[in-house]
C-alpha cells in the first residue's frame, strides 16, 4: 500500500511515496525550471524505474502548480500549500504550535493550536528572503547554495544589510563587499536581515510559540535557522524531511480522500512516457477575456484551466 504526494513549486518539484504508516519510503527533489509537466514526468520516471510493480492507492497534489499536476497524475486531493504543510507537520508531532515555511517564492507562517490551523499569513509584497533570492546571491558570490549557511556560521560579526527589498538588499550587499567586508560576515548579515524581514512582515502580529517547525527548501540553510533561533530565543526544529513536507501533506490528504471514496483516480506511473502538450489562448466570448490553457496527453485533451465561467474546464471533464 503506497500513497503518492506531488508538490509542484516555483523552484522545485517534489515527490514522495508513503507507506501505510505514512512514513516516507522515497523522496525525490527536482528543480522545476519553469516546466512543471516535464519535472513531474521526470520524477515519475525515477519512481517507475525503482518501484515498477507497486500499487498506489491514493495521490495528492499541492504547490502553486497543483492544478496542472492534479490533472496530469489524476490526484484524489488538490490542496493548497498551507494546509498540506500543516497536515505534514502535525503527522510528525501533534504539539507543533508554529510553522515557518520558506520556499522558492513564498514565505508563510502557520499558527496551530490544539492540532488545527488557527491563523496563517503569506508574504504579500516582496519576495526578498525566499529561496530564489538566496539562490541568486549564492550564485553571485560564487558559493554553492548547499554551503551558503555554513559560511554564516563561521562569522562572528554580522554586517547590517537592508533586507526589506530584494533589489536593495543586493545593492547593499555589493556596497558592503566593495567596502571590503569578508563574505562570511556579509552572509551572516543577510541571514539576519531576512529573518528580521520575515518576522516584521509575514510574522507581524502573530504569536510565535514553541514548538516551531522550520520547513521548505530554505530550512536547509543553517545560517537562517540559527538567525531565527537568535531572534526568537528558543529552539527551531527542522524536521527530517523539511524540503518535501508539502508533498507529504498532499500524500496524506490524498490517502484520506481515496479511503473515503473507496477508490483512487491515480493514473499510474506510466505517464512518464506520455507526450504532454499545452497551448493557451485568450477566450473572446465575453469581456472577461480569460486566458485559457489547454492540456493534451498524447493528442487527447485532458484538461483546461483559467476560465472563469467553467465553459472550458467543464467541457473536458464531461469527456
Amino acid at each position: 500500500m503506497y500513497y503518492l504526494g506531488v508538490d509542484v513549486g516555483s523552484v522545485s518539484t517534489n515527490l514522495v511515496l508513503l507507506d501505510k504508516n505514512n512514513s516516507v519510503v522515497e523522496k525525490i527533489y527536482i528543480r522545476t525550471k519553469g516546466s512543471p509537466i516535464k519535472a513531474v514526468q521526470e520524477g515519475f520516471k525515477i519512481l517507475r524505474d525503482k518501484y515498477d510493480n507497486i500499487k498506489v492507492y491514493g495521490a495528492g497534489a499541492t504547490g502553486s502548480g497543483r492544478h496542472i499536476a492534479a490533472t496530469l497524475i489524476g490526484a484524489d486531493a488538490v490542496k493548497n500549500e498551507i494546509t498540506s504543510h500543516a497536515v505534514a507537520a502535525l503527522e510528525i508531532d501533534r504539539e507543533v504550535k508554529t510553522i515557518i515555511e520558506i520556499g522558492g517564492q513564498d514565505s508563510k507562517i502557520i499558527i496551530l493550536r490544539n492540532g488545527v490551523v488557527s491563523d496563517f499569513a503569506m508574504n504579500t509584497v516582496c519576495a526578498a528572503g525566499t529561496g530564489s533570492f538566496l539562490d541568486r546571491q549564492a550564485e553571485r558570490l560564487d558559493i554553492p547554495i548547499e554551503e551558503f549557511g555554513d559560511y554564516a556560521l563561521n562569522s562572528n560579526i554580522a554586517v547590517r544589510i537592508a533586507g526589506r527589498c530584494a533589489v536593495f538588499a543586493e545593492s547593499d550587499m555589493i556596497h558592503k563587499q566593495q567596502l571590503g567586508y569578508n563574505k562570511a560576515d556579509i552572509i551572516k548579515g543577510l541571514c539576519d536581515a531576512l529573518v528580521r524581514n520575515y518576522l516584521n512582515n509575514v510574522g507581524k502580529g502573530k504569536e510565535i510559540l514553541p514548538k516551531v517547525f522550520f520547513q521548505g527548501g530554505v530550512a536547509a540553510n543553517k545560517g537562517i535557522k540559527t538567525a531565527f533561533e537568535r531572534a526568537l530565543g528558543f529552539e527551531v526544529i527542522v524536521p527530517k524531511d523539511y524540503n518535501v513536507m508539502g508533498a507529504i501533506g498532499a500524500a496524506i490528504l490524498g490517502r484520506e480522500i481515496a479511503e473515503k471514496e473507496g477508490k483512487t483516480n491515480f493514473k499510474g506511473l506510466d505517464l512518464a512516457s506520455s507526450i504532454f502538450e499545452s497551448n493557451s489562448f485568450e477566450c473572446t466570448d465575453c469581456s472577461n477575456r480569460c486566458e485559457v490553457v489547454k492540456l493534451h496527453e498524447n493528442n487527447r485533451s485532458i484538461g483546461c484551466f483559467g476560465d472563469r465561467c467553467g465553459k472550458w474546464s467543464n467541457r473536458v471533464k464531461a469527456i
Binding site: K79, N80, E81, V117
Partner: peptide, 14 residues
C-alpha cells in the same frame, strides 16, 4: 486563491 482555500480549510478543520 491559496489564501482563500487555506482559510476555508482552516474553518472546516476547526
Amino acid at each position: 486563491v491559496t489564501r482563500v482555500e487555506a482559510f476555508i480549510d482552516l474553518l472546516e478543520r476547526r
